[in-house]
Design a protein around this nucleic acid. Sequence first.
DNA 1: ACGGGTCTGTCGAGTTCTCGACACATGTTG
DNA 2: CAACATGTGTCGAGAACTCGACAGACCCGT
Lengths: 237, 237
Amino acid sequence: MAKAHDNAAVTAIDNDIVSTLSPSDMKTLLKDARTVDLTPGQVVLDVDAPVKEALFPETAVLAYVGCYSDGGCAEMISVGRNGVTPIDAMMKGDTAAHRCEVQVPGTATAVPVEAFQALREKSEAVAEVADDYARDFVDHVMQVAACNAAHQVEERAARWLLDLHDCVPGDDIRITQERMAEMLGVNRSTVSGIVQDFRERGLIATTRGVITLLDRPALEAASCDCHRHDSKSDKTA
Amino acid sequence: MAKAHDNAAVTAIDNDIVSTLSPSDMKTLLKDARTVDLTPGQVVLDVDAPVKEALFPETAVLAYVGCYSDGGCAEMISVGRNGVTPIDAMMKGDTAAHRCEVQVPGTATAVPVEAFQALREKSEAVAEVADDYARDFVDHVMQVAACNAAHQVEERAARWLLDLHDCVPGDDIRITQERMAEMLGVNRSTVSGIVQDFRERGLIATTRGVITLLDRPALEAASCDCHRHDSKSDKTA
DNA sequence: ACGGGTCTGTCGAGTTCTCGACACATGTTG
DNA sequence: CAACATGTGTCGAGAACTCGACAGACCCGT
């Protein structure tokens, strides 16, 4: 489960949302923060659960997933150091509409949701950051929704890897092909073939449980342009 | 193009969002409103366009669509009498992130976006309505995103018809199979087969350009349960 | 070094969906 | 009514993807 680190005060964290805050807002926000370790598959928040904390991922990546009666699952969107979960908290909601799982292991900073909402009330800047993020989030999910309907698996796989790349600090992505298949809603053997293809073309390298991006521009070319649309953050390698 | 009706004052309109407002808020909102006629395929708002008006559909249905370089298109989500466009305006944005087209012809009430935002500032209730709607919208799009990845066409088609049914006043949906295919991101011949199947099973009736829901519960059974998740509004026939 | 668990590559039969094409049906217009 | 435009049914070859299964590879712990 989420293992809290020793409670040394959290001072600076490697998360894009938090980084944009003013020093004083940041200090207020992080006053009651704690760092948590997250392990793959762990359910951070389940459907209709009350939201207690806002999570700002650093090296971890979280993902909203839909789970169905037939046992199937699929990803809605993933969130890493470029974002915060749950989106509900950013939109003044107090319960989670969807299940949120740990996609890639790592750390995140947890802030009591009351602390965040209080700061939001006080600081115009924080409110704006939250609103801006919520809008970007919606843009992205809408893009994904259409992409999943319109494009074939190979393009979507490339797009998904790029999305995930935006969520992690380096170029290594700790993800299994099995999970990748589930998130894309396709069979593992299909993913296996695609990954092989990407590897042969030099776009990625793989070791057991890890995919490393080697040639991001080429991967972008292999993907549908759904990714480019909503990633304003260039991750110039 | 959008044809404005004669400028008789708009007093009451058949839209769920507007209906929930207090009489005074409603009056304020509708002060500068005008009714517009919308025709299928018409682009209400394009990508990156400045938002000038908020549209509250009555009999019309709008849809956010992603359009791609290969000529393909797909729907993100549709909005009818149960909602308002653009979602950006509900989230304090001033530009449209995605293209919004007319899916089903009919009428909508247009309100200058400044009027809406001004009212939102003044009225706590209006602000809450906007926030609530934005959250529901996000929930729904996230559901659609996963659904499009995980489920096969027949289930998705049923889900899509149910979504659309929530957007229109009666049980008749003025939509062509060709458009339906495009929105689902599949071939028209696939839709043709599915529609036929639904018809033979008594779930729907069809005439040229119109699909009529006959047995909603059965259609729900034929769909994945993605629809049930986010439609709190029972449309008890 | 060894065993066990997990991740990955591969295969083949079967299903779903695509794509282009054509004929026919239906509603609308002059 | 005739002519037209547009929507729908259908067909067949082929591509994309599924599903279950198995073998091998890798990493972990002891």
